[in-house]
Design a protein around this nucleic acid. Structure first.
Length: 592
RNA sequence: GGGGGCGUGGCCUAGAGGCUUAAGGCGCCGGCCUGUCACGCCGGAGAUCGCGGGUUCGAAUCCCGUCGCUCCCGCCA
């Protein structure tokens, strides 16, 4: 510490950088240049010092010779992450000393003068190395973590994708319109974040779970094509792909049907991939009914980078009963007993009574269940799933179709991971369409909107809505990418009576509907246009493009799993004064 | 609310009843070094093994509790 304090920090004065640390190239040789940045690495050879100077653009090697006089003395005292301004001449590197790992590796800066703009204590986490560091430490020192070139890259990628969205939407006549953050609570699925009102003591705003109602009101107001890169808040428990505050690319359009929304989003996503990822996506994404996704892949967001799709089988006997489904895993017939047992354990964990295997070798189908179900039946199974020599056939059975699909879906995903069938650089998009309008809450026996209560019924299912609502399909859709729900949307209701009918099916009384949605119902009576839209999860999208596992890697200042910001310590205790102003009192007995 | 994993110098890891006076790499400090680029070489400092209790002649190691982080289930229209 003594050493550090003895180092004189110098003022910036009128000195300005002429280039960034990623700009100088062989064509700049001989030019005078001033760079500013952080000391990434320092290599002191005694009579010659190399400094790798870093800014967010890149790294430039600076050489300090004893001939540089004062600058050499300073360079001897410089340490990692000191902030420097260096001035000198660009020199070509000799053929032997070119560094191919650096964009600027063909040249170096021969330093003539050096200014120490600031010092740095030794670092609590490494900046110049890509080692695994405890995540809570990274969060606590996020400003250092973000200096790491990889994290800088993520921040830049996010910016570029957001910019691509704005460029594309603008070119398509969409307007970015801001909607309130302080709004009234709307009974959507998640818990609200509440904000107490000082002016209206005892009352609370809710932070938006999405701009849903406002964007629909914008359509009623004739704004026609709206988008917003909007922050949304949901007070639910966190996951690797879920933060309490997250960002949506929120879109709404008037005078459209489902296919118009698809075409627009396909264009948007294609533009993002083409301009940022340099990847050309197909002109049209596939469409898959919800029922097919569930029956074939056991998920409403199937990862389509690999097949392993389910076939319903005619099979019974011994332990095999109920609905039976199986799928083929190409070339994986050689699984050990131990590996098989592990899958069976997993199947049990996800509610499946049993999981059975068959293998195909030299035209023969072998399985522990062959004596129960018969060899001919097994042969038929192999034919049905398309199994060939060396393949593994996975078979599951359960009386409950829903549980069977869910369990097999889980196993399918695990096998996809284990057998490395999920290529990092493949992007398999699909629309999942024809979602059910309602889902039955088994605890309350009440119907709940599967998407949200403003979703229009499928045009072919109005009769079902009246007579058998649980069977009715919605004009709702998801965009799925590599097993992730990337976007979700619907064609909305724009008719007062229809809106009342859909809401009333969820058990709300007319009075409740009027109290909660009266303003929306009113708006529908003054010339509401047909409209629909969608919202894309920006955090998940960037995560996938960056090829990382957690959305925290692409959020500059994320929360940890306890929904805390370890950098600023939020949330914090309010002062008594703050509580008094808001007329609030903490119930200590409820604090655990 | 529930289940799994992890917690050892500033950072990353090893050690799983006595080889330990806790080992290695990075970083840090000092010395040497004029073409390095994860510079090299020599030397050094730095750890109540998350915390509390227990078992034992003996605990980083086993047991109980607790705290923190993380992954998952529930939850997330």
């Amino acid at each position: 510490m003594q050493v550090q304090q003895s180092i004189q920090v110098e003022p910036l004065g009128n000195l300005r950088r002429t280039h960034t640390c990623n700009q100088i190239r062989p064509e700049n040789v001989g030019q005078p240049v001033t760079l500013m940045g952080w000391v990434h690495r320092r290599r002191d050879l005694g009579g010659l010092i190399f400094l790798d100077l870093r800014d967010r653009y890149g790294i430039t090697q600076c050489v300090i010779d004893p001939d540089a006089g004062e600058a050499f003395g300073k360079a001897e005292r410089v340490r990692s992450e000191f902030v420097l301004a260096v001035t000198g001449k660009v020199a070509a590197r000799t053929e032997k000393t070119v560094n191919k790992n650096l964009d600027t590796g063909g040249v170096e800066l021969v330093v003539e003068s050096l200014l120490i703009l600031n010092t740095s204590k030794p670092l609590p986490i490494p900046v110049a190395e890509d080692t695994q560091v405890d995540e809570s430490l990274r969060m606590q020192y996020r400003y250092l973590d973000l200096r790491r070139p990889l994290m800088s890259k993520h921040v830049l990628l996010r910016h570029k994708l957001a910019k691509a969205v704005r460029d594309y939407m603008d070119a398509q006549s969409f307007m970015e319109i801001e909607t309130p953050m302080l709004m009234s609570s709307t009974p959507e699925g998640a818990r609200d974040y509440l904000v107490p009102s000082r002016v209206n003591k005892g009352k609370f705003y809710a932070l938006p779970q999405s701009p849903q109602i406002f964007k629909q009101l914008l359509m009623v107001s004739g704004q026609d094509r709206y988008f917003q890169i909007a922050r949304c808040f949901r007070d639910e428990d966190l996951r690797a792909d879920r933060q309490p505050e997250f960002t949506q690319i929120d879109i709404e359009m008037s005078f459209v049907g489902q296919e118009d929304v698809f075409a627009m989003v396909e264009g948007l996503v294609r533009h993002m991939w083409s301009s940022v990822m340099k990847v050309e996506l197909p002109a049209r994404f596939r469409r898959m009914p919800y029922s097919e996704a569930i029956e074939r892949y056991g998920s409403d967001k199937p990862d389509l980078r690999f097949e392993l799709d389910f076939h319903e089988l005619e099979l019974s006997g011994g332990p095999v009963s109920g609905i039976v489904k199986g799928f083929r895993v190409a070339g994986k017939g050689g699984q050990s007993r131990k590996e098989g047992d592990a899958w069976v354990e997993m199947a049990k964990g996800s509610g499946l009574g049993g999981l059975f295997f068959a293998t195909v070798a030299e035209g023969e189908v072998k399985s522990s269940i062959s004596k129960h179900v018969g060899e001919d039946a097994l042969k038929a199974v192999a034919a049905k799933v398309g199994a060939q020599n060396g393949d593994l056939i996975v078979i599951g059975a359960h009386a409950d179709r829903k549980k069977l699909n869910a369990a097999l879906g889980k196993i399918r995903l695990e096998m996809g991971k284990k057998f490395e069938l999920m290529a990092r650089d493949r992007y398999e998009f699909s629309w999942v369409v024809d979602f059910p309008l309602y889902a039955l809450n088994e605890e309350t026996g009440q119907l709940e909107p599967e998407h949200h209560p403003f979703t229009s019924c499928h045009p072919d299912d109005f009769d079902k809505l009246r007579n058998n609502p649980v069977e009715a399909r919605a004009a709702a859709y998801d965009l799925v990418l590599n097993g992730n729900e990337l976007a979700s949307g619907s064609i909305r209701i724009h008719n007062r009576d229809m809106q009342v009918e859909v809401l009333s099916k969820t058990g709300l009384t007319y009075e409740e509907i009027h109290a909660k949605f009266g303003f929306l119902l009113d708006a529908f009576e003054y010339g509401a246009p047909p409209h629909g839209g969608i919202a894309l999860g920006l955090d998940r999208l960037v995560t996938i493009c960056a090829g990382v596992e957690s959305i925290r890697e692409v959020i500059a200042f994320p929360k940890n799993q306890q929904a805390q910001c370890l950098l600023t310590n939020a949330p914090v205790d309010p002062t008594q004064e703050q509580l008094d102003i808001l007329a609030l009192k903490i119930d200590q007995s409820k604090l655990s």
